[in-house]
Amino acid sequence: MMILLYFIALLLAGIASGLVGAMSGLGGGVVIIPILTLLFGVPLEYAAGASLISTIATSSGAASAYVKDKLANIKIGMSLEIATTLGAIIGSLLAAYVYANGISKWLFVLFGAVLLLSLYPTFRQYEDVHRKRINQDWSTDIFQLRGSYYDKAVRRTIKYSGYRWPLGEAIMGVAGLISGLLGIGSGVLKVMGMDWGMKLPMKVTTSTSNFMIGVTAVTGSAIYWTLGYIQPFIAAPVVIGILFGAYFGSKLLQRTANRSVRLLFLVLLGIIGVEMVLRGFGVA
């Protein structure tokens, strides 16, 4: 009976994480890892394993909706996955080193720090929603960094183009490394790379990020599998929960303007980031 309740609790934790993960473009990982470690007392490597494999579900579940609605830019996403996959291989091998040497408390600190650092660019752009959507340089043409989408919130088709592909690619390398190291989709960094780096519209960056997360996460997950970081009883309910949460999250995202999505970003990131840093230093 207790085991069944534990299973249901894991499922509910997954639903909550999936909802927030899809709506914010972060992936469920940044929410489920603190829930599993801080509330459920699950070891960080199992939390990271459950998180990483479930971000594949978040990505595939939500992205299938985004792709159909043409919010996600498949080409831009694919070109940036060169760096995220290489970064994820290096990151997951680094994670193996960290866990083998018993210094995982630094991963809690890093986890919190990554979230808190991501507050700055998010906050800065919060007032910058209606900026110029057409930017061009040499990489715009070579890598075909153009597209258009129908924005349900303002009811019209928005054309856009991005630039500074090498900068985007460099940020994606770091995003991949963090993904493999911490077991998250690194949605924050991916959004930063496309939003701040390549100046793509926010709706496109969040959905393309969500789309890309699956490929990044599967890279790390394959290595996590061999390392034994995936505990099926913990990972699987989280995966199912996150899938359903992400489904409803992606439905909600289409009906929400940029403003409320970002506010949700800020509040959640702040609280979770501080909690994880404190845990790393042994305070909480």
């Binding site: 199992y46 394993g49 390392l227 034994g228 995936i230 913990i234």
Partner: peptide, 10 residues
């Protein structure tokens, strides 16, 4: 169901 029993993907 235990996180300490060593039951994992490896």
């Amino acid at each position: 169901a235990s996180a300490n029993s060593g039951i994992n993907s490896s």
